[in-house]
């Protein structure tokens, strides 16, 4: 109960915040560009140069740039911004004198970041579908004949969501630790850049959790026995726990 109350507060803090705008813009920008492109060229989904599984091809086409560039950047920025909120407003001392355990405080903010990520996924999927369906209606084309692959969309969204977790965990940890918000942003962007460069050139690129989302977007071949979903789970668990201990040790930063 205390946790739910705390989470409600954390969620309220995102109202009108930079992270919220980022989520909205990040979610709809790419679909909007797609939509504009379709209008300009009088294209619809059926113009894709394939004739089967059009929905699946479309999914990866629109997700690619998102998964490689925009999503990792968005995760880095939003988790840092949402944590930075407390430093910038001088509010850690307010938060830490409310009657909640340190663990509840840590979890509530983390959950708000995860909810924001989920919100982004919902926005992006709505945008993605709208960008496919609306041009078909406008140009009076038919939608692809094959039925919509619900489970494919759901499973792949969840996979990408899962690979976001370790990045969020690491960014949250760094953001809690350092008052200067350039530290988490700078570190995050550096990790991401190095990881993306190495994704297709180094066979051990999978050691960096920042490469998982790009790997899905680029459909990278992985060495046998390596499952980035399992690795994501392990990394997240480790860094979520480490973040908690960092926060507990550091709570006098305020």
């Amino acid at each position: 109960m205390q946790f739910i109350n705390s989470l409600r507060g954390e969620w309220l803090k995102t109202r009108r915040s930079a992270a919220s705008w980022l989520c909205l813009i990040g979610g709809f920008l790419l679909p909007l560009l797609y939509f504009i492109g379709a209008l300009k060229d009088h294209n619809t989904l059926n113009s894709l140069p394939v004739n089967s599984e059009i929905w699946k091809v479309y999914f990866f086409q629109i997700w690619r740039f998102m998964a490689v560039v925009m999503l990792p950047m968005g995760l880095i920025l939003s988790s840092s911004l949402m944590t930075q909120l407390e430093f910038r407003n001088n509010t850690w001392k307010q938060v830490l004198t409310t009657p909640q355990s340190i663990g509840t405080i840590y979890l509530a903010k983390l959950s708000a970041i995860l909810l924001m990520t989920l919100k982004f996924f919902i926005f992006f999927n709505i945008g993605m579908l709208a960008a496919a369906i609306i041009p078909s209606l406008i140009f009076d084309h038919q939608l692809p004949r094959d039925s919509f692959p619900y489970s494919f969309y759901l499973v792949n969204n969840l996979k990408i969501l899962l690979t976001c977790m370790p990045v969020i965990a690491i960014q949250y940890l760094i953001s809690l630790r350092f008052k200067n918000f350039l530290v988490p942003i700078g570190a995050g962007l550096m990790f991401w850049l190095v990881s993306v460069i190495l994704v297709n050139t180094w066979k051990y690129a999978y050691v960096s959790p920042y490469s998982y989302t790009p790997m899905i977007g680029l459909n990278t071949k992985l060495p046998a026995g390596i499952n980035i979903l399992i690795l994501s789970g392990v990394y997240s668990a480790v860094f979520f726990a480490a973040g908690f201990f960092v926060f507990r040790a550091k709570r006098e930063v305020s």
């Binding site: 109350n5 507060g9 309220l12 109202r15 009108r16 001088n90 001392k93």
Partner: peptide, 26 residues
């Protein structure tokens, strides 16, 4: 408590700032 410089969320209204606390104390 009130310690030193104001501890408020500047992008929220007065009421929203109070709401955050109100949730916690039910």
């Amino acid at each position: 408590s009130l310690i030193e410089a104001p501890s408020l969320y500047s992008h929220l209204t007065a009421r929203e700032n109070l709401d955050i606390m109100r949730y916690l104390y039910d």
